[in-house]
């Protein structure tokens, strides 16, 4: 049964990538909000924020990239939900295909779409004066962390995609994820925050991921942050993957 997994996943991924190619607005709307935040914070609030780095946009970009991913994955839930609504999901399920390929196709599509959005956001940041001395290895490490984070959040998105009762429900789960970076070291250093907020900010996943990416961009030693970041990403990925598969199995049997 699983002998067709790779082939079926490729065919179905091709299908949803075609959806994206025909409505590129999903990639643009994914990138618009993070870009708006970036403009707002760099040109409006940024002057008053003391971060200790030479340019605020350099400090800000890692957090903006995470917001980009968080807003991008809501489209995965949306697309999955539409497949379920439209009946094509049932058609696929009644065909002799590897059943898990239906989910994997959406996950891989999410990865591709998010990577494109991330490239758009980084290009805008470069226009706004973002500079990094990181070499090829540094950029690859950043890309690796972002890919892992995208996969983790995408598997979270699969759950509402499968279980939501309405389109709004399918995409609303993304809002808390989009706002999580605000209570982290993404926009301002955590030292100025009052005790409990600071404790939350320093122990939630975004801070370690942002710090690791920032250190890679500024060629600082990444110390323990990168391990905490990787542990968070892998941990979320595994848990979300398991829950998504439980929801999926419930849906198809």
């Amino acid at each position: 049964m699983n002998k067709h997994f790779l082939g079926d996943t490729t065919v179905l991924t091709g299908r949803s990538l075609r959806h994206i190619a025909r409505s590129p607005d999903t990639i643009i709307t994914t990138a618009i909000m993070p870009i708006a935040f970036m403009l707002l914070f760099v040109y409006v609030f940024g002057g008053a924020i003391q971060t200790g780095s030479d340019k605020y946009v350099n400090y800000l970009l890692p957090g903006i990239l995470l917001i980009t991913i968080a807003s991008g994955i809501s489209y995965t839930a949306f697309r999955l939900f539409l497949d379920l609504q439209g009946g094509i999901f049932e058609r696929f399920q009644s065909m002799p295909i590897a059943r898990s390929s239906v989910l994997w196709a959406h996950v891989l599509t999410s990865l591709v779409a998010n990577l494109i959005s991330l490239v758009v956001v980084v290009l805008v940041a470069l226009l706004m004066g973002f500079r990094s001395g990181a070499g090829v290895l540094g950029w690859l490490a950043v890309a690796g962390i972002l890919v892992l984070f995208t996969l983790a959040l995408t598997w979270i998105a699969v759950i509402p995609g499968l279980t939501a009762k309405s389109v709004d429900g399918a995409s609303a789960f993304a809002y808390p994820l989009i706002f999580l970076p605000f209570i982290s070291s993404a926009f301002v250093p955590t030292d100025t925050m009052p005790g409990p907020v600071r404790a939350f900010a320093e122990h939630q996943p975004v801070t370690s991921i942002v710090n690791a990416v920032r250190d890679l961009f500024t060629q600082q030693p990444v110390d323990s942050d990168i391990w905490t970041a990787l542990a968070w990403c892998v941990g979320i990925l595994v848990v979300a993957y398991l829950f998504a598969n439980v929801s999926y199995r419930r849906k198809i049997s």
Binding site: R15, R18, H19, G86, G87, I88, E90, R91, S94, M95
Partner: peptide, 14 residues
């Protein structure tokens, strides 16, 4: 088998 459900299960975008 093949199934033709109550609502045309076609991909609108393709």
């Amino acid at each position: 088998i093949s199934l033709t459900g109550q609502f045309a299960a076609v991909d609108e975008i393709l």
